[in-house]
């Protein structure tokens, strides 16, 4: 029997990666497009804004792609993300990796982590709209199709991440 409160245990990233690849392949074969993630956040934001201020939401032309459909929340990527949440929850619960926590680099204060978590999120939200997707929809799905988009995105992301890490050495290490 495994002891529960222990350091997180994971599978080999090659095994997990092969599983991700087969999931992506199944998605291509069954529905004819790839996996996504960031558009669900944009969609929920647009729908939420419409609830708060319909007038303002409809003034933002970018959100019209979500709002001008019959049932905005019956969206493929949004349902996939709900599945993702449940699948990852099952994984962490079944292996004893689930633990309520506020994860941060050891040396970082809670206030600073709130700032990096939220601020980094803002940059991700903005840049994934600009790039028409994120690590899932462009890098992984596009990369596997050998689409130029996927490889441009993935190379730009790693290069800037390495430069950023060299400049902000104490952010995570």
């Amino acid at each position: 029997m495994e002891v529960f409160m222990k350091k997180d245990s994971f599978w080999s990233p090659y095994i997990a990666g092969a599983g991700l690849g087969l999931t992506l392949l199944a998605t291509f074969v069954i529905v004819g497009w790839g996996l996504g993630a960031s558009s669900a956040f944009s969609l929920v934001t647009g729908v939420g804004l419409e609830k708060l201020s319909p007038e303002y939401a409809h003034k933002l032309t970018y959100f019209s792609q979500y709002l001008n459909v019959e049932a905005p929340l019956l969206n493929w990527v949004l349902f996939e993300i709900m599945g993702l949440f449940l699948g990852a929850l099952a994984g962490s619960l079944l292996t004893g990796n689930f633990r309520l926590r506020f994860d941060k680099p050891e040396h970082m204060s809670t206030g600073a982590r709130l700032l990096t978590a939220f601020g980094g999120g803002i940059i991700i939200g903005f840049s994934s709209r600009l790039a028409r997707g994120c690590t899932s929809g462009v890098a992984l799905s596009g990369g596997a199709q050998l689409a130029l988009a996927g490889w441009v995105f993935v190379i730009a992301m790693f290069v800037s991440g390495f430069i950023g890490a060299a400049l902000f050495r104490r952010l995570w290490s």
Binding site: A131, V159, G164
Partner: peptide
């Protein structure tokens, strides 16, 4: 440009959307 900005957001927050 989006990918490059995304790399910074990924590094700062520690996550990507999925």
């Amino acid at each position: 440009l989006g990918g490059a900005l995304f790399g910074i957001g990924f590094l700062v927050s520690g996550y990507c959307p999925g």
